[in-house]
Amino acid sequence: MAGDNGHEELRIGVYVCHCGSNIAGVIDPKAVAEYAMTLPGVVRATDTLYACADSGQNLIKQEIKEYKLNRVVVAACSVRMHELTFRAAVSEAGLNPFLMEMANIREQCTWAHGHDPEGALEKAKDLTASAVAKAAFLTPLQMMKVPVTKRAMVVGGGVAGISAALDLGAQGIETILVEKQPTIGGTMAQLNKTFPTMDCSI
């Protein structure tokens, strides 16, 4: 059904992470994986102790080949945490990185419903199903490459800004240091000696 040519058979792999006890301490990841196995298009579902660790990533990479997976769902933590990790992993196994979808069953499930394991398990199943549903309609995408202007701007000429500008300059990068006052130095220039070494601030 879905897919780049629209006719490719769906072969979704689902990986449910324990995250040590962070997830497994509240719900049974195996139960989520077994449940995922019943969903349309899913050909492989299993649990793994740490999906983000080398072992977990290797498992995913290996099984993409073994089960000829064309979509991967990782039910683990927040996309803000590990989306890039798993995109990289599936891409190393030859799958387009945008054919990977995550279900957040840690921050937004077990961590928030620690006292309600039953509700958390229900929710984890639903979130995984939702990710599987999205995965069914994912299409391969290419990262866009943009040119880079090799100049930097530092806004604020206090001690942090000066430090950043000097380091960028030392890297050979042309840097514009912008300061709204007539002199750089910021608050630190107003100080007498500074702790704990008591050297002069300027």
């Binding site: 945008f98 866009m144 490459k145 943009v146 040119p147 001690v159 942090a160 950043a164 500008a165 380091d167």
Partner: peptide, 22 residues
């Protein structure tokens, strides 16, 4: 943190191209 920011910015500024999500 100023030095750290310079180093983070350097990752981009030393590349010829930077990838952004499509």
């Amino acid at each position: 943190q100023g030095s750290a920011a310079a180093s983070r910015a350097g990752r981009i500024l030393h590349s010829d191209q930077w990838e952004i999500e499509p």
